[in-house]
Each structure stands twice: as structure tokens, then as C-alpha cells.
Design a binder for these strands. Structure first.
Length: 555
RNA sequence: GGGCCCGUGGCUUAGCAUGGAUAAAGCACUGGCCUUCUAAGCCAGGGAUCGCGGGUUCAAAUCCCGCCGGGUCCGCCA
């Protein structure tokens, strides 16, 4: 709805070059700074210019009034806009906020190495990726999500050795058991210098055999990978995340996409074969050559990744990858090589590292907080709060789970991806903050009022724009911006602004809730406010769903 | 050493793309609010030379240059 209002403003100012001068503001629904820009070239006072401009334009569409103040031109939406906003929300309900984009797009996220459980660094990736995927779907895009499984890496080979040497603890959650083997073999190599070299040889041999499709080796790798993946999937499910497809690196060896890529590179004459195969990317500003085939004939991560992206090019119009910022260099190398081949590169969303107060995490050293542990601890905390409330056991379970996983998702998604974050468990466990709980709570408050309205047999809604208080108007204007918030994420690929938007609605709804009695108001006002409550409920619910957080009706 | 990212009240962050009207929240701190639609809530108060220095501009947290501090990458690892 707000997008329409914006269009109306643009239309009104069509004789001026307002591109980029329109701002949302606390002083107006939309403000233009065009007079400041014009003041310079016309050598005039911006205050006078603003007066002059508004004398030349007429409100149209949803514009109710226009004022010139301090050089700004302020636009205010009219009553029809408020009424249409509420009515559209109530009519379109779960579809409110959708855009009519189309296209087919692939989003790859999480893609953690299958050598252990997801830790809180991976979760940042998953949450950003899943949220972007949800928002793109809301925008009307046909989204497919992939988890790219690095099943051919050294880590997995090492894990295979570890599993053979130490066995696997079947009483544990499978991904954690795999981590034990992986951490165990790393520790063993450190402590037994003499055997290190022999293990390294074994690892290399395993990798070669796996790549060559050796019948005895494949099950070894598959067992380790499947074990890890099984646990990872379980964790992701807890967080309300699932992928449409798990794609393994090795598939691109088996389906010969890797050899296709290598042949194409060779035909282009950009391979320097000197034992290993190298690509010179100095034209793209890279100091070092990129190796795409080892001297022993095996391929590297980037080689298979190139093959994967060839496949992406053949099957999707557009692709987005969520990657830790440690992948920036290899990401650049990947897209430069794809560029040479005339293939489209994925749009990469990089996020900075998550560290612990005591330093950075490492799966290899066993130094990490696993996602499972985090979920477990937050779950305990939310269960504690629910203890003495009158809910059934099932309800308590459901609520605490929704609250716990919501809190985790929100904590990760609210921070701009380019900011490194130090994960503070204590603050994550604190529910007395503006976090997902706050939004969920606002939603339940709305539900609660509506439930009571039905119980007391006056469920009728009738919004009246002209009777809006300042607070009500502010809330409705905010509700009208839902699709703008969706559009912003689609444009910027940074979902933290959306988390902020939903929070702002919750804050304003609570404000409204505290200052405006609904059920006790006389009939007209009551119906008016019930409409606002219901619209807020819808927007909060849709917003929470886009954040992958369960909206609750009671808590 | 070179590349990339970050640096906003005591702490955690938003704002920076497109410069513009008193720099916005939460936590913590101080004081108040449960006979009123769920207090996982609300209200009030104190607290910021927006890392430092320069530049551009009528106007800089926002753009440019330099510096300092932190992170990260620079494997025939992924």
C-alpha cells in the first residue's frame, strides 16, 4: 500500500527530478528534499523554492495534504489511504505483503561441512538464507533452496579415518558422534607425530579412491556424510528450516559436469598444465594462480563448485549464495572464472564471523557452541518461565519451543550480515529484551483481544480513518509498509531490516494497546479499534512467518 | 606486508546505498505502574565530541583521503 502512496507522490512531483530525494520521516509520511538540490543550481533559497513548488502541485491519489516546512516538502496520506490499507490487509489476510515478482531462483545456504553438528556460526548462515528464501517466496519468486554438501573434502576423508579408528558412538545424536570421530582423529594426529604422515597418506588415498568411484570407498564416505547430515537436518528442522535439495559435490564428478568444465577451460586455452592445472587470473587482479586439478589428478573444491555453477546456470535464471566472509576470495575466483566462461555468477551474501567471548570457533578443535546446545539451553530457560502458568503439558512444550527457536532466529537475523558478532549466551537467554518474544507477545495480545471480542459477541470490525488518533494513524501507516519492507530485502539481500520492521510494528502495537482500550470503548470506536487490532495481528503473523518464527495465539 | 569487512551512550545494535529537520532502540542504571483487553508488558529519568585527523558541501554518522584499533583471507584445504 505504501508503495502506491509513494508512486502518487512521485507522480505529483513528476516535473522535478525527485529520484532519491524521497525519504520517510518522522515529520511526514514522505518528505522530499528536492528544493535543497534545486536551490543550488537556481541560486535560490530552498525555503522559498519549497513554497513555490507546492503552489504548483496538486494532491492526487492517496495524498491528503502537502506542506512546505524548512525547505522540505512534506506529504501526508489521506483517510482513504488509511481505510484502504486496513481493508486490504483484512481482505488479503495471509497474502498481505506479497509482491508480484516472478522468476526462478536458487538460494544456496548453510552448506556446512558434514563433519559434525551445526554450530552457532553456521546458524547465522542458515537463518539469513532461510529468511531471504521466505521473503523471496513472499515476493512471488519461484525459490528452490539447496544445501551443497562438501562430501569430497579432506575433512570428510579424515572423518572416515576417525570413524574406522575409534568407531562411532551410536547412543549420541549422529552429527555429534561424527564430530567425535573428526575431533578425535585430529587430536590423535597431534599427539602421535609418528603416525601423522601415515594417516595423511591414508587420507589422500581415500580422497583419490572416492573421486575415482571406488566401490569399496564410496560407502565409507556416504556413511560418514549421511550420519552427519541426518543430525544436521534434525537441527535445522528445530529452527524451522528445510532445504528443497541436498546436492553433493561428488554428483558433479559422477555426472561429468566437472570434466565438462575442465574441457571448456582447456579449450579456451586458459589452463596452464604443469603437473597440476592452473588458471591465471591476474587480469582480474588475483596475485596467485588458481589450481583446478592436483598433480595426482584429483579435483579441488573450486573445480566442483565451478561444475555446480555450470549446472545452476543451466537450470536457474538467478542464484544467490550465503557465504561466510572467509569465502570472499574463493568466491571472487569462482565468479571471475565463470565470467571467463561467459556464465552467470551467483549473487553472494557474505556474513562476518560469529565468535565466542573466549575467541573464535573451530569444529576441528571441538571449540564451538553447537546449535543443539544453544537450543537446549534456551528451551530450558523458556520452560522455566512457563512453569507456573496454566497451560497443558503439550501447550507448554509448543510455546517454549516456539519462543526458544524464535529467540535464536531473531538474534541472528537482526544484525547486519557484515557485522562480526560475538555470541553472548547470557544475553541470548534473556527474554526481557526486545527480541522475537516481544513480537510473539504482541501478536498474542492481539489474538487475545479478538478472542474476547468473539466471546463477548461483538466481533464486528469497521475502520474509520477520520477518527484515528495519532497513535492509530502511526500504526496503520506502519502496517502499510509491509510490502516495501519485503521489497527492500529483495533488493538488498540483507534481511536484518525486515527484522527491524516487524519489531517496530510490535512496539507500536504495544503502544496502542497500552493507551487505547478496545473492548471497553463505545461501539463505533470499538469496531474501529478491533479492525486495527485484527490488521496488526495479520501483519505481525505474516511478518513472523517470514522470519521463520512461529506466531503464537497464547503464551 | 597486501586485499576485504567492522569501529555510533557502560554493553549490544539501527541509521550510511540516495548527505538534509532535535542521532534511534534494547540491555544495564534510577524512580514509578498488576481491583482495567496476558507485567515475556508499560511510563519517566540520567547517559553519545557517531574511533582519530583532514577534505568536499549551504549541510557529513552518511561521500573522499590518511591514520589508529579489531576481525578475516592470502594451501595442489574447504
Amino acid at each position: 500500500m505504501f508503495r502506491q502512496f509513494r508512486k502518487d507522490v512521485m507522480e505529483t512531483l513528476k516535473n522535478y527530478d525527485v529520484e532519491g530525494t524521497l525519504k520517510e520521516s518522522e515529520h511526514a509520511d514522505l518528505a522530499s528534499t528536492i528544493s535543497f538540490k534545486l536551490a543550488k543550481e537556481r541560486k535560490r533559497n530552498p525555503v522559498d523554492l519549497a513554497e513555490e513548488i507546492i503552489s504548483e502541485i496538486e494532491p492526487s491519489g492517496y495524498i491528503g495534504s502537502i506542506e512546505a516546512l524548512n525547505g522540505y516538502i512534506n506529504f501526508f496520506a489521506d483517510y482513504d489511504f488509511l481505510e484502504d490499507t486496513i481493508n486490504v490487509i483484512l481482505d488479503t489476510d495471509e497474502n498481505y505483503g506479497s509482491l508480484n515478482l516472478d522468476g526462478k531462483i536458487l538460494i544456496e545456504h548453510t552448506s556446512a561441512n558434514p563433519d559434525g553438528p551445526l554450530h552457532i556460526g553456521h546458524i547465522r548462515n542458515s537463518v539469513i538464507g532461510d529468511t531471504i528464501a521466505r521473503i523471496f517466496r513472499k515476493a512471488g519468486v519461484d525459490v528452490t533452496t539447496h544445501f551443497y554438501v562438501n562430501d569430497m573434502g579432506r575433512q570428510v576423508a579424515l572423518t572416515v579415518v576417525g570413524m574406522e579408528k575409534f568407531g562411532i558412538d551410536t547412543s549420541k545424536k549422529s552429527d555429534h558422534a561424527v564430530a567425535d570421530a573428526y575431533i578425535g582423529i585430529n587430536r590423535y594426529m597431534e599427539e602421535n607425530e609418528a603416525e601423522k604422515e601415515q594417516i595423511e597418506r591414508q587420507v589422500e588415498e581415500l580422497m583419490q579412491n572416492y573421486e575415482n568411484g571406488d566401490k569399496d570407498t564410496i560407502p565409507l564416505f556416504e556413511r560418514a556424510v549421511n550420519y552427519a547430515l541426518e543430525g544436521i537436518k534434525e537441527t535445522l528442522k528445530q529452527l524451522n528450516i528445510s532445504h528443497d535439495l541436498y546436492v553433493r559435490e561428488s554428483e558433479f564428478i559422477r555426472n561429468s559436469y566437472v570434466s565438462r568444465i575442465l574441457n571448456t577451460l582447456d579449450r579456451k586455452g586458459i589452463l596452464r598444465k604443469d603437473g597440476a592445472w592452473f588458471i591465471d587470473l591476474s587480469d582480474y587482479g588475483h596475485e596467485k594462480e588458481v589450481v583446478v586439478r592436483r598433480e595426482n589428478g584429483t579435483t579441488l573444491y573450486i573445480t566442483r563448485d565451478l561444475a555446480y555453477h555450470l549446472w545452476k546456470n543451466e537450470n536457474f535464471e538467478r542464484s544467490i549464495s550465503i557465504l561466510g566472509s572467509d569465502h570472499k576470495l574463493i568466491g571472487k575466483q569462482l565468479s571471475d572464472i565463470l565470467d571467463i566462461l561467459g556464465l552467470k555468477s551467483p549473487e553472494m551474501v557474505f556474513f562476518e564471523f560469529v565468535s565466542l567471548p573466549e575467541g573464535s570457533m573451530s569444529t576441528r578443535k571441538g571449540k564451538f557452541i553447537s546449535a543443539d546446545e544453544l537450543i537446549e539451553r534456551i528451551l530450558n530457560e523458556s520452560e522455566k518461565i512457563l512453569e507456573d502458568r496454566s497451560f497443558s503439558k503439550e501447550e507448554k512444550k509448543e510455546i517454549s519451543h516456539a519462543v526458544a527457536t524464535g529467540a535464536i532466529r531473531y538474534d541472528f537475523v537482526r544484525i547486519a550480515p557484515e557485522k562480526a558478532m560475538t555470541f553472548d549466551l547470557k544475553s541470548a537467554l534473556d527474554f526481557e529484551r526486545q527480541t522475537a518474544v516481544y513480537i510473539q507477545y504482541s501478536h498474542t495480545r492481539a489474538c487475545s483481544i479478538l478472542r474476547k471480542a468473539v466471546d463477548e459477541e461483538f466481533p464486528d470490525l469497521e475502520f474509520n480513518g477520520t477518527t484515528c488518533t495519532h497513535l492509530e494513524r502511526k500504526l496503520v501507516m506502519l502496517l502499510s509498509k509491509f510490502s516495501s519492507a519485503v521489497e527492500k530485502v529483495v533488493r538488498e539481500l540483507r534481511p536484518h531490516s525486515f527484522a527491524d520492521y516487524v519489531m517496530e510494528i510490535a512496539v507500536n502495537f504495544n503502544d496502542f494497546y497500552n493507551q487505547h482500550p478496545v473492548l471497553k470503548a463505545e461501539k463505533e470506536v470499538r469496531m474501529h479499534r478491533l479492525a486495527i487490532v485484527d490488521a496488526s495481528r495479520i501483519v505481525l503473523r505474516n511478518g513472523l512467518e517470514l522470519l521463520g518464527i512461529r506466531p503464537l495465539e497464547k503464551m
